[in-house]
Nucleic acid binder design. Structure first.
Lengths: 116, 116
DNA sequence: CAGGTTTATCGTAGATTGACGATACACGAT
DNA sequence: ATCGTGTATCGTCAATCTACGATAAACCTG
């Protein structure tokens, strides 16, 4: 992946402007994974069925196979799903705990925890 | 906003490939709002303090005022925050229920509800 | 090994993002 | 009215995203 999270520039000119903390980056990364309807749909499907062959996902969406494959890659990179090679095909399933982790982070957002 | 959510093309060639449902679009839109560390940090700040003058937010981040303003706009457009004009300044606060709504949608993702 | 299936990757095109400085706008105070 | 402050918007640039077809890679089957 080519640095999906952009870096903040400007080395704090005068005031101690605090860069976003780790938790913020983690929230952002996970949120990014869901930030496209197709990816939300894919994740929904996987959570619903438990697991799915890539081909089944492609067949269920109005997108080209290459495009779906890209979305699957993003979902993997953001930690939402895992893929297991099964002969000539690949079986995807939700990463255990990802949703829980995301909800925790959201709670942290909401609970006055420092983002660093 | 100029169609932040891209449309799916391909009018379902043969199989009844289902486009992402409304819930998926809503999840994606809200997730998009959080999908940048700076925006997560801003929202965290607002949830923590209840409300904040724009200037205070700018001062707390290593970003130019124009950039912060853009992020605030995104957060508004995605429904996370609201801004109230207060004389020459603008006071931002979290939209009531946005976080709750988001969590509901996540639960729906997780609970086998149809995305349409 | 040849052939078919399944999935990932490459290369490309067009839109959009994120960042900034500069500028315009709105308002309160002098 | 004019000045100064606080925000939003404009214009721009480089980088990234999304989508696609084409192609490669990996794997069973015959």
């Amino acid at each position: 992946m080519t640095e999906r999270i952009r870096l903040m520039k400007r080395p704090a000119p005068g005031k101690a402007r605090r860069a976003p903390g780790k938790a913020d980056e983690e929230v952002a990364a996970l949120a990014w994974g869901l930030a496209h309807p197709a990816r939300a749909a894919i994740l929904r499907m996987l959570l619903d069925r438990g697991e799915c062959i890539c081909g089944a996902i492609v067949d269920s969406m109005p997108l080209a196979q290459a495009t779906v494959s890209q979305h699957l890659k993003v979902l993997q990179e953001t930690g939402w799903i895992e893929g297991e090679i099964d002969g000539p095909r690949v079986c995807y399933c939700p990463t255990a705990g990802a949703m829980t982790r995301f909800k925790e982070l959201l709670k942290g957002l909401d609970t006055g925890e420092r983002g660093s």
